[in-house]
């Protein structure tokens, strides 16, 4: 039996979810019908494991499955694909942590489920929306965002002008860049540039709080040393967790505390053997593109490279 909103769709003996939906006249995309093309991917509470086996661990963790491969026993409740409802939050704290970068803590007025490292949309009162990654954990009770002020940026400029107690409306959470505790001994490689640190901080804290025992290398890159922020907080985190190593990387003017060079080249050098590593890459699109290619060519399996590149706002 399938549940889809108010609709109840009984499945025939041996029928897949895809076949059942089609028989009932539900408009559902499909392609190869053999578990390869992923066009029929849907989301549900606890789908049959065999319908998830070829998907990435982050998709599996969110209940995605292939309808053409699913023959559920009992009831399967499908999620509809509508956009999440906006949530009101209040600015709890705003702090300027580096040139042009603010760390903003928002307290949601209603529950806001997310996984650290995912992103949310900030909804400007004039209707514009921009995405920001979440650096905090659900147990913190606040949503931590790192916002770089973009010249003439509608939403970033507005956010930088917020003060404690102001209202900020958000929606989410979105994205595939988060920790899945499927192998507590796996080595995790977290690489980000600029405010790409935000999701990495969330992912690192999340992995540690879930008892991750394998090594975690967090590599933060910036133009020059003054652009690297939250360094004390990262050091404190590493003191509490011996498996966590923090590496600071800059393009120029490195001191004894930073590595100097291209972030993708440094990442490969600092990471060591890559065959059984999971990587999380965050930052602007071009940097993530270069990192992904470099790590892949150095031997990392493509399925273990997770990234939500920061894309420029639509013109």
């Amino acid at each position: 039996m399938l549940s889809l909103g108010a609709q109840e769709i009984p499945l025939l003996e041996g029928e897949t979810v895809l076949e059942g939906l089609e028989r009932s006249g539900v408009d559902v995309a499909s392609g190869c019908r053999a578990g390869t093309c992923c066009k029929c991917m849907l989301r549900a509470d606890s789908p049959p494991p065999e319908s998830q086996s070829t998907l990435r661990p982050t998709l599996r963790a969110q209940g995605y499955f292939l309808a053409c491969q699913a023959r559920p026993e009992g009831r399967l409740t499908l999620h509809s694909a509508e956009a999440p409802t906006p949530v009101d939050t209040r600015v709890e704290e705003i702090e300027h942590v580096a040139e042009g970068v603010a760390r903003i803590l928002l307290r949601p007025s209603t529950p806001f489920p997310f996984r650290p490292g995912q992103y949310l949309d900030v909804l400007h009162p004039d209707g514009h929306a921009r995405s920001y990654s979440i650096a905090s954990l659900p147990s913190d009770g606040v949503l931590e965002l790192h916002v770089r002020e973009i010249p003439n940026g509608r939403v970033s400029g507005w956010l930088h002008g917020r003060v404690q107690g102001d209202d900020v409306r958000i929606r989410g959470a979105f994205g595939q860049c988060f920790h899945v505790a499927d192998d507590p001994r796996k080595k995790l490689l977290l690489v980000g540039a600029g405010t790409g640190l935000a999701p990495l901080l969330g992912i690192a804290r999340d992995a540690l709080s879930q008892g991750h025992a394998g090594p975690i290398d967090l590599i933060h890159g910036g133009l020059e040393p003054g652009r690297l922020y939250l360094r004390e907080e990262l050091s404190r985190l590493a003191e509490q967790a011996p498996q966590l190593r923090i590496h600071h990387c800059v393009l120029r003017r490195a001191t004894q505390h930073e590595h100097e060079g291209q972030l993708d080249e440094l990442a490969v050098r600092l990471a060591g053997p890559l065959a059984s590593v999971r990587a999380f890459l965050c930052g602007d699109g071009e940097i993530v593109h270069k990192l992904r290619r470099k790590l892949f060519l150095a031997g990392m399996p493509s399925a273990e490279i997770l990234a939500d590149p920061f894309l420029p706002a639509p013109a």
Binding site: C32, R33, A34, G35, T36, C37
Partner: peptide, 14 residues
């Protein structure tokens, strides 16, 4: 490319 490799080896791909 995975779909392409699957297709040219007679696997399930459109």
């Amino acid at each position: 490319q995975k779909a392409f490799l699957t297709f040219v080896t007679g696997g399930p791909a459109e």
